[in-house]
Design a protein around this nucleic acid. Structure first.
Lengths: 203, 203
DNA sequence: GTCTATATCCCGATAGAC
DNA sequence: GTCTATCGGGATATAGAC
């Protein structure tokens, strides 16, 4: 195996990385299907044909964006699942996981949420990762209900409510760049976990 | 103005209504841009050219789906805003508004959430309706914090958390058709408003 | 109101010069 | 590694027969 040296551009990325990041930004704005290779080429200041010296296909770009993110979530959940902390702290760790990943890859989160159905070869793999993630999440909530750390409501509704909020963070985080990630994770955790009703009781 | 009589098909819809409803279903599965007029024609068992006897353009279909829904939400919010009930009851009414609209037009909600950016002439109008809706929502939360009905957290985070959950209902409601709408609205309201932490206090 | 045929344009991707 | 030129196909939409 030979060492490879890559010329990096002014932002410290290889051309391939630049193309993928730019594609993610365009996919966020219009969705995978509405972005053409000519759009993407214009955004990185080359001709469409030249893109193919760096990537195999449009589909190849989508795969790179989505699969790496889905695996980041899977790995994060695995760590949280096996950690020795309270259920409430596990939920706070899940909130932080989403906040951190969304901060460092805001554009990619849009594709993960909205364009996964355009995956071809990797569709089944993606769906299995997502299914496992949701199952792990709902198990954490169920065990919290058993230990009475969590109010006894429908576990799927609780999971859905928290997860859809976390999945939508990418839409909203760019407007709130005055909040740093610790502050945001704490605020969001308070709202999602402790609720908003000032009069609510623990009964 | 002359009276018009329309032949209705076996499901009691005009052909135009059937086309729009079928389009909404396809848009939910793949997004507006990835659905072709040939796909839509096949789904309603005619040829693509024949669609144009009922609708002006593909864009015309998207406009019909999104604008009517956005106006339903605007009207619902207007009623809630002016009603003389507690803030918590206003929030519960917003939850019910979303549950009811999502139940009767699940497919359309996907376009409202994901395909609004493909609106052409009506884009600005849609954006103004959405902006007003969110402003009304956050005002309700702020007044609830003032009256101490709502815990003193960041109002935008509270609004975002509740609204993204409600906007994502269309993804999840079809899997939960065992719950009727009153049950669902109550469960969801409990989780969103009272939170999930069994140990949380009102301090 | 549905059909066939077609106009016009744009898509993803490749070939090959430089 | 980027370019020009182009292939083959599929997109929305129209024209006009029935």
């Amino acid at each position: 195996m030979s060492l490879k040296f890559q010329l990096l551009n002014s932002t410290g990325q290889t051309r391939k990385q630049e193309i993928i990041k730019t594609a993610a930004k365009l996919f966020k704005e219009k969705g995978y299907s509405a972005v053409t290779m000519r759009d993407l080429a214009k955004a990185v200041n080359i001709r469409a044909a030249s893109l193919y010296n760096h990537i195999d296909s449009k589909q190849d770009i989508l795969k790179s964006i989505i699969i790496s993110l889905a695996e980041e979530f899977t790995n994060g959940m695995e760590t949280i699942k096996n950690s020795d902390v309270s259920i409430i702290d596990k939920l706070r760790a899940i909130v932080s996981l989403h906040v951190n990943i969304t901060i460092h890859n805001t554009y990619g989160m849009a594709s993960l949420n909205n364009d996964w159905m355009h995956l071809e070869d990797q569709l089944e793999y993606y769906l299995s990762l997502r299914k496992n993630y949701e199952e792990d999440f709902v198990e954490i909530i169920k065990s919290g209900i058993e230990t009475k750390e969590i109010r006894d409501s429908n576990p799927e509704i609780i999971m859905f409510s928290i997860l859809t909020t976390l999945r939508s963070l990418y839409l909203w985080l760019p407007k709130k760049d005055d909040l740093n990630r610790q502050e945001l994770a704490k605020n969001l955790g308070d709202v999602l976990i402790n609720g908003i009703n000032h009069q609510s009781t623990t009964a």
